[in-house]
Design a protein around this nucleic acid. Sequence first.
DNA 1: TCTGGGGTCCTAGGACCC
DNA 2: TCTGGGGTCCTAGGACCC
Length: 428
Amino acid sequence: MIKAKKIAIVDCNNFYASCERVFAPNLVGKPIVVLSNNDGVIIARSEEAKTLGIKMGDPYFKVEKLLKSNKVNVFSSNYTLYGDLSARVMQTLETFSPEVEIYSIDEAFLNLDGIEVDNQTQYLHIIKETVRKWTGVPVSIGMAPTKTLAKLANRYAKKHKESDGVLNIFEIENRDSLLQDTPIEDVWGIGRQYSAMLHNHSIYTALDFARADRSWVRKKMTITGLRTNLELNGISCIDLENSPPKKKSIVSSRSFGEYLTEFNELKEAVSYFVARATEKLRKQGSSCNSIAVFIRTNPFKNSPQYYNSADTKLPYPMNSTNEILPYAHRILEKIYKSGYYYQKVGILLMDFVQTKNASLSLFDPPNRLNQIIATELMDKINKKYGREAIYYAAAGMKENRRWQMKRELLSSHFTTNWKQLPEVKAKE
DNA sequence: TCTGGGGTCCTAGGACCC
DNA sequence: TCTGGGGTCCTAGGACCC
């Protein structure tokens, strides 16, 4: 018999909304929503906002009146702020376990195997309280022998006030009833399509699914579904990942603040995205062998529609902005058609190799080394003085970018005055 | 459901090869 | 009348996650 693992998942409650509240304590108890890029749709809600019936993904313009009449505090998304608070939360968690997998901006798995404490559940409560004290962010914690069950426990802890934000599944005598209480669509790994399919086969809860025939599950839902089934039965199939795996592709794309029609403006935007994406590429020590570009009109408007994309193989692995730009521009020329109102462009980098293995070749253009050196220098300057302290003219002057995001409700005062924040320090 | 953006994994099927 | 058998690589598409 294999000893059961102890996996905890720590999940920040209503993360973006909570972040806005950290620096605006007057908003405690008041409804808050946070909007997506371009103030498009609702992507986060405080509990109070949820109670008002505001849904995830509601277009802002459709619920604007409802928000106003209920005095809901509305924010544009402020990823600088959320990223910073996320890092603080993760650092705090790392003091509780040597093995932390940062799963997303607001979630982390902790391996609590081998952590000797008198009372495991109490330890979870201490983690929760410490994160709140040190960062101001409220979290919920679920603990179980598998990731899928930990997620399930976490969801339960969030839903039921009496659990006080913590559920340790090892202490639950009747695990079946917990699974029975969980609708199948709320299980990690079961999305909308599979839920519908399972409903058709009279599977409605996590318990129904855990008891389903495994060969049938394998056939209908591939190996992925089988893993979920096993994990619900306490058999761990999905391991913690210690170091973040390197990205296999990198996308950079954005909807515009206003529609674009001119090739040159699209070209600027594409250039900007190439700079963003290759920066990430270099940061993880990779070079790419191919690139794709796509453009599209707004699919929700009644105006003429256009979507096109194309990709190209690069002659050798590249990672500097300047080297990749001409290829991106060429693809854009190919797919651009005048006469449309474009809403979005994006670029995609693919087929990565490690840069250190992609050595310079005899057939490289003569100035290649200079390009690489210049790029490294730019990265250093930008790291020191902030994003786009120095940038390519191809991306257009910062001040003149009509395509830049609309963020009219940004909570700017904390980030612009970051140094004035009170220091949050750990007490021994 | 549809007025965000950025990712991953899995499988089927076609192209091509011997 | 059922046309051999087997392998690899690549791509598109479908599912999922936050």
